Amino acid sequence: MSTTTESESNYDSLERMPVLKLLQSINQEDKTVPFAVERAIPQIETLVKTTVDRLSRGGRLFYIGAGTSGRLGIVDASECPPTYGVPHGMVIGIIAGGDGAIRKAVEFAEDDTTQAWKDLQEHHITPKDIVVGIAASGNTPYVVGGLEACRRQGIATGCIVCNANSNAAATADCPVEVITGPEFVTGSTRMKAGTAQKLVLNMLTTATMVQLGHVKGNKMVDMQLSNTKLVERGIRMVMEELQLAKPEAAALLKKYGSVRAAIEAYRNGDYQV
């Protein structure tokens, strides 16, 4: 099947380009990605609304992917608990070839049409959950096979792909098609396609977590206070919200362990500074 992500680059003789020209050309191609994402916003909206529905009812969001796509899903999933204070099992990234494939490619892992469903079953997946397949081509057997199995089991599905008329999009309930075109290096979908997928993943989980109430105003009130930088950020948030001096805000945050809990305790009169 012919795909635009595998089509010939708009540039040639790359090895003869000066470094400045290489960088300018890559940047020129990268500039097209946000516009491709913009065209897919109606599809992203549908995926977000379906995801919010599942998670608000106690379901989970799963990502399945291979190679770069799988790694992007794992990164997005791993960032949700520290950013929004949600349980580690709420958003789960699964990569073809297992966790070892995060660092080192596993040969032919993406070609197995049945393994994704086996991987999902290890997490006791149910129809309460939603599964999003991430595949630049939209035709990765691991991803397509997983989506097909989910559909047979009545599990909601989505996908993030970078080609039109793909098998993944035809299978998914909520397809997101971001058509990024040829890569600067022919077929190197870690570039524009990977950037597009990262942008969509940012939009998906950010919008979902806002809808689920994990952001107040524009602040991450449920973030984990896992390092000095985040503790300082939390103190500033409490100071601004409650109009307290830094020592009082720091003491409040230390006692209650989260920005939301600290603010609520103070406003409920449970804590006096």
Rank of each mutant, 00 (worst) to 15 (best):
E38C: 06
E38R: 01
R39K: 13
R39N: 13
A40Q: 04
P42G: 03
Q43D: 08
Q43E: 12
Q43S: 02
I44C: 01
I44K: 00
E45D: 12
T46Y: 07
V48I: 08
V48N: 02
V48P: 04
V48E: 01
K49D: 12
K49P: 11
K49R: 10
T50M: 11
T51Q: 10
T51A: 10
V52S: 03
D53C: 15
D53H: 15
D53L: 14
R54V: 04
L55M: 13
L55I: 11
L55Y: 09
L55N: 09
S56F: 03
S56W: 12
S56R: 14
G58S: 14
G58N: 13
G58D: 05
G59C: 11
R60C: 14
R60M: 11
L61G: 10
L61F: 07
F62L: 10
F62R: 06
F62N: 08
Y63F: 13
I64P: 10
I64C: 06
I64S: 02
G65V: 10
G65M: 00
A66T: 04
G67M: 02
G67R: 00
T68N: 05
S69F: 02
S69R: 03
R71G: 04
R71F: 01
L72W: 00
G73N: 04
G73V: 06
G73W: 02
G73E: 03
V75Q: 10
V75I: 11
D76C: 00
D76R: 00
D76T: 03
A77M: 04
A77K: 06
S78R: 09
S78A: 15
E79M: 00
C80Y: 09
C80T: 14
P81D: 03
P82W: 05
P82N: 07
P82M: 11
P82A: 11
Y84V: 01
Y84S: 07
Y84G: 02
G85Q: 03
G85D: 09
G85C: 08
V86E: 00
V86N: 09
P87E: 02
H88P: 15
H88Q: 14
H88W: 14
H88Y: 13
H88T: 14
G89D: 13
G89R: 02
G89F: 14
M90Y: 11
M90H: 14
V91L: 12
V91R: 14
V91A: 08
V91W: 03
I92N: 10
I92G: 08
